[in-house]
């Protein structure tokens, strides 16, 4: 089972709540501004993501989704 963590940069308001709740401390706010002038969240290192959905649950703007795709997890 292969998961993909995705942050919709334009929906993110840079509130930073996801950064706080990530158990792996794998999220940070980017240095670039998004369309609305917020420093949107992004992953430090995609490999460290546990896909635990803590960030998704915390995000007030439902900007973080995790999609499941069928192809095997490649090493």
């Amino acid at each position: 089972m292969k998961f993909r963590h995705f942050i919709d940069i334009d929906k993110c308001k840079g509130c930073g709540l996801c950064v706080i709740v990530c158990p792996k401390k794998n999220l940070k706010l980017s240095e670039e501004l998004n369309k609305k002038g917020y420093y949107s969240a992004l992953q430090k290192n995609p490999e460290n993501c546990l896909f635990c959905t803590s960030c998704c649950i915390m995000c007030p703007d439902v900007a973080i989704t995790i999609t499941e795709s069928a192809e095997e997890e490649t090493e």
């Binding site: 308001k13 896909f51 959905t53 995000c59 007030p60 999609t67």
Partner: peptide, 30 residues
């Protein structure tokens, strides 16, 4: 390990007017 997470159908994907960090958005999602 891990699970998928997506927006509910009953929730629109229109961006909200709520302030950054306002947890109205979390309640709307639920």
């Amino acid at each position: 390990m891990g699970k998928a997470f997506k927006k509910a159908e009953a929730l629109s994907d229109r961006p909200t007017h709520y302030c950054p960090g306002c947890t109205h958005g979390v309640i709307h999602r639920m």
